[in-house]
Amino acid sequence: MKKFLLIVAVAFASATYAQTEKGNWMVGSDLSFSYETSKVTTSTKVNNVTTDVDVTTNTFKFVPNLNYFVINNLAVGLGLEYQNTKVKGASNAHNTFAIAPNAHYYFPIGGNLAPFVGAKVGYAWDSVGSSDESKSRGLLFGVKGGIAYFVNQGAALTGYLGYDYLNLKNKVNTNNSEKTGKFGVGIGVALFF
């Protein structure tokens, strides 16, 4: 009886994770949200005036992607990314588009769950308005870790924590640069073929 249960368990685990085998495709989409509040302190040398300003930033991100499993549990692919960042009280939002090759590695633990890690490196375009002075472009780097819940052989739901880093230079004045790092929480859906 114990041998039978062991055989059933092994068959179930391998059937559940057949979707992360070499040669399969994964099409997915992630939604992410981050919230940041910070205190910015500025001082003027002429009058020795110090000003504290509370800044609240909300970021929404949508990332469709297509990946191919090059070996069991390792998928590489390409993601297209859209981010909308709004600073409370500001009239314009930052709109960022990016194209980023990525990789995901799944750790099958049995049942319907598989922890995973992912990384991406790509190129991003950011704009606050329509003029060239308000546009920037540069490097995007990101990492994430989370867990996938396999609903069935063809679909999984994911939840994750991620960190994105942007290093952008102004389109007109390349001496002006902006470096930002953001932690966020996200959910996603993945279809396996």
Rank of each mutant, 00 (worst) to 15 (best):
N48P: 05
K22A: 12
T41S: 14
V46D: 13
K2Q: 08
L31Q: 03
K3D: 09
V49D: 14
P64G: 07
L31K: 02
V27R: 00
L74S: 02
S29K: 00
L74G: 01
A11L: 15
Y68C: 07
S34W: 00
V8F: 10
F62I: 15
T56C: 10
T50H: 09
T37C: 03
S32V: 03
S34N: 08
E36P: 00
V27Y: 04
V49T: 15
F12G: 08
T41G: 07
N58S: 14
L66V: 15
L78Y: 02
K39A: 06
G77V: 01
S29E: 02
S29M: 08
F33S: 02
K2D: 06
N48H: 09
D30W: 00
Y17V: 00
S29C: 06
E36S: 06
N73W: 06
P64S: 10
G28K: 01
E21R: 12
V10K: 02
V53A: 11
K61V: 10
S32E: 04
K39W: 03
S32P: 00
F69S: 02
T51Y: 10
S34K: 02
Q19F: 02
V10Q: 04
K45N: 14
V63C: 04
N65R: 12
V53C: 05
E36I: 03
W25L: 10
V8H: 07
T50Q: 13
L6S: 06
G77P: 01
S14M: 09
T42E: 14
T59Q: 11
K45D: 14
T50A: 11
M26T: 00
